[in-house]
């Protein structure tokens, strides 16, 4: 088999399966990518040097992979979480100065009001499906994130927007 024609995933599956049976004969390489929200088949025919792919995935994040901006979304999402952890750290650093009497309570309050973005986490971001999936997957490995509320605070997700997204 030198060419594969597929119209839908069923047709593709059949084509890949049948070509897989002829792998030795036609030297074809088949790779299946099956994640939690993606079912994608990539077929490389090393006789013709042509790669064909097909499948289905939830949302449009595979599209972002193809056009190369997925890593921008990934970076921005993770940087937001790191910056929020920095805000918490900055706050407790300032609070420890208050407890040590290095600063007065008035100086403590003034500093928080003057530079609030350095200390206060805001929950205003409306997450896309891709950002939510990144956050959910990352949350499994991030320390101290065990609940939806912890994840919202870490990634600055607006709770109402998150609920709207999940209801879709």
């Amino acid at each position: 088999m030198n060419t594969l024609t597929f119209i839908n995933t069923d047709n593709f599956d059949e084509a890949v399966t049948s070509s897989g049976n002829n792998e030795e004969q036609y030297g074809q390489f088949i790779s299946f990518i099956q994640g939690q929200d993606t079912e994608l088949h990539v077929h490389y025919n090393n006789a013709t040097g042509i790669t064909r792919l097909g499948g289905a995935c939830r949302g449009d994040h595979f599209f972002h992979h193809l056009i190369g901006d997925y890593y921008g979304i990934l970076k921005d999402t993770l940087v937001q979480a790191i910056n929020n952890r920095t805000r918490e750290r900055n706050y407790f650093r300032l609070y420890s100065e208050l407890l040590e009497d290095s600063i007065t309570e008035e100086e403590f309050n003034n500093e928080l009001q003057r530079n609030c973005d350095d200390y206060i986490i805001k929950l205003q971001h409306k997450p896309s499906f891709e950002e939510l999936m990144i956050a959910l997957n990352a949350s499994k490995d991030i320390m101290d994130i065990t609940s939806v509320e912890d994840m919202q605070t870490a990634f600055s997700f607006a709770p109402k927007e998150l609920n709207n997204l999940l209801e879709k």
């Binding site: 939690q36 999936m133 959910l136 939806v148």
Partner: peptide
Amino acid sequence: KTPLKIYDNLLGHSAKKEI
């Protein structure tokens, strides 16, 4: 608090997941 496990279905850990 709502545990993150409630979103396992979204991640495809449920047997009901299909695309």
